[in-house]
């Protein structure tokens, strides 16, 4: 509860400015969602004519009917799930032990390794060398290649490493006295204590994988392997210069715009569903009470 009387004039002014800015920001991020959803439920004519602002015009689900009948939509949808789940698990398998090792003072050459990891945040080989590397490893047009090739992410490692470093040393020592080896210390103490941090990077990983577009487009050729985002791109380019489609759509009541919007809505739904489950781990103060400094 704000106790307005306790605020000075300057504080009140500040609170108002902040509220307005937050309000504007909320609108700016929320509106595209609403707009896309509205377009996806509008008729093709209305969408093309630019009549849609906030709510669907001539509401229809024709666009959904069109894409849900397309087998390629379901294949790429499935692929996106595979890349997201497989990639996230693969990444966590690398990132957690890596971050733990880098956070331990007893690691020999720790500074060097830390620098080595951080280095990749600022410099990387670039598009073509990376592509050639993947080609030479036989990972072109390979689903496993997509999962493995992007498993390690320096930013997430550093994020988690910093969190591990903030866990008091005495937890590790207590676990060691209790008989735990390195893996047990990590698995039974550090991971449970790091749920908020791990939930955060898991969400980062899921979103990055789910929206992963560029490298999938570069590295994958087979239609049977492309993820939803690449399918979306194909759909947009196919539909907009397909004369035949233009005739079909006029009759059916959808257009390239509404179909695109419908695919986007379909692709957003799973992330929206996952978020509340992960969000519950963003609880504060999980370390409270265990140690007293």
């Amino acid at each position: 509860m704000m106790k307005w009387n306790l605020y000075s004039r300057g504080d009140k002014f500040f609170a108002i400015v902040v509220s307005v800015l937050i309000g504007l920001f909320t609108v700016a991020t929320l509106y595209p969602f609403i707009y896309i959803a509205a377009v996806s439920f509008s008729s093709g004519f209305a969408a093309q004519a630019g009549k849609v602002v906030l709510t669907p015009i001539d509401a229809t689900i024709e666009a959904y009917g069109y894409i849900l009948k397309d087998p390629q939509f379901w294949i790429s949808y499935r692929n996106t799930f595979i890349y997201t789940i497989g990639g996230t698990i693969m990444s966590l398998m690398f990132i957690i032990p890596c971050a733990y090792a880098l956070s331990r003072p007893q690691l020999k050459g720790r500074r060097f390794f830390n620098l080595f990891i951080a280095f990749t945040m600022w410099f990387n080989a670039g598009l073509i060398p990376f592509f050639l590397n993947m080609r030479d490893l036989g990972l072109l047009d390979s689903m496993f290649g997509i999962i493995l090739g992007f498993a390690i992410n320096a930013f997430n490692i550093i994020l988690l490493r910093n969190f591990f470093e903030s866990i008091p040393q005495s937890f590790e020592e207590a676990a060691r006295m209790d008989g735990a080896n390195d893996f047990q210390v990590l698995w039974k103490v550090f991971i449970p204590l790091s749920k908020p941090a791990i939930a955060t990077i898991t969400l980062f990983l899921i979103v990055a994988r789910w929206n992963g577009f560029f490298w999938a487009m570069v590295l994958l050729q087979s239609e049977s392997k492309i993820p939803l985002q690449v399918f979306l791109r194909h759909t947009i380019s196919n539909l907009s210069d397909d004369d035949e489609f233009a005739i079909v759509q006029t009759a059916a009541g959808f257009s390239a715009e509404t179909v695109t919007a419908a695919i986007i809505v379909c692709s957003i739904i799973p992330v929206l569903i996952v978020y509340p489950f992960i969000q519950k781990y963003f609880e504060k103060g999980i370390l409270l009470g265990g140690v007293k400094e």
């Binding site: 008091p168 937890f171 207590a174 676990a175 006295m177 204590l193 999980i286 409270l288 265990g290």
Partner: peptide
């Protein structure tokens, strides 16, 4: 075969 009691207790909070 030793056990230690730490200054800050180091109880596992979870």
């Amino acid at each position: 075969d030793v056990a230690m009691v730490f200054q800050n207790y180091a109880l596992y909070p979870h």
